[in-house]
């Protein structure tokens, strides 16, 4: 059996699936405990149900995008290992970058044809080791750090903590939106206006979608929409990305995109 066949074998599914099952069990335990603790401190169960519904509906679309990451890496690493990496601890942008860096170190290209058993086990070790520090820090410092934060949060009188968290998140969102604006204005060189407009258009469409669904959910009888507003707004943004690519196939991509658009139209017709 060649290396790729063994990387896609039942044994590999068993090893990786076993670890994923363990992590899923941990999630179930945390969810059940949080639910019970919420009830014990007098939280409204309808609020907790709202959180569950919203989190579940929101997570589907990013999870499908993560699945594409599994597919992208499966050509070189087989299906089970990327499945494990992206289900547990991994991040979409991290895995691809580290896998390529690791392949460079073992002196191969990250392709199925070049993969050897030793290269794979080395790449797998590196992918696990490079991103373990969040967990290591949690082991030693989570308790102390979160206890300090909780004490501050529970202090009587005005606290800056909640405002700081909102500000930090605004900073996070601004970094990404700023990168889409920068990507459009300075795509390949400063002020060349040849960048890809799709991320910004998609973000704007999602923002418009969020505005619409937020307004609708304020109407009588449509309150339920609030739980799904984020997922629906994301769908609106993603639909805008498809529409934009169909209407302006060459935007931001030059001639290559024009060629792609022909195929896109054909694909659309086939779907």
């Amino acid at each position: 059996m060649d290396v790729m066949a063994r990387l896609n074998s039942g044994t590999m599914y068993l090893i990786c699936g076993g670890i994923i099952a363990f992590v899923a069990a941990v999630c179930v335990i945390f969810a059940l405990r949080a639910w019970r603790a919420g009830k014990a401190i007098g939280m409204d169960t309808s609020v907790m149900l709202k959180v569950i519904r919203s989190s579940a509906s929101f997570s589907v679309l990013p999870a499908v995008a993560i699945l594409l990451g599994v597919i992208a890496l499966s050509g070189a690493l087989g299906v089970p290992w990327p499945w494990l990496r992206l289900s547990v601890i991994g991040a979409l942008h991290y895995e691809t970058q580290v896998a390529h860096g690791a392949a460079e170190q073992v002196g191969i290209e990250l392709t199925g044809d070049a993969m050897t058993a030793r290269a794979f086990s080395t790449i797998a070790l590196l992918m696990s080791a490079c991103i373990m520090w969040g967990m290591v820090l949690n082991l030693f410092f989570n308790k102390k750090y979160s206890s300090t934060l909780l004490r501050r949060g529970e202090k009587k009188g005005p606290s800056f903590g909640d405002t700081a968290m909102t500000a930090m998140f605004i900073g996070l969102v601004s970094a990404y939106i700023g990168s889409y604006i920068g990507g459009l204005v300075s795509g390949n060189a400063r002020f060349d206006l040849a960048g890809d407009p799709v991320p910004l258009c998609c973000a704007l469409a999602a923002a418009a979608g969020m505005m619409l669904f937020t307004r609708l959910s304020a109407l009588k009888g449509l309150k339920w929409l609030e739980d799904f507003s984020l997922a629906l707004a994301m769908l609106a943004g993603m639909a805008a990305a498809i529409l934009f690519r169909v209407l302006f196939p060459a935007a931001g991509n030059g001639a290559a995109a024009a060629a792609e658009s022909a195929a896109l139209m054909m694909g659309g017709a086939m779907l």
Binding site: A203, L230, A236, G237
Partner: peptide, 26 residues
């Protein structure tokens, strides 16, 4: 998942997410 029509949508999950969140927080 890999269809040329749907691919741009899955490539833009993060911009869609931050666009929606931007409205909420801005």
């Amino acid at each position: 998942l890999e269809s040329r029509v749907l691919r741009p949508a899955f490539d833009q999950v993060v911009p869609a997410l931050f666009g929606a969140m931007a409205f909420r927080y801005y």
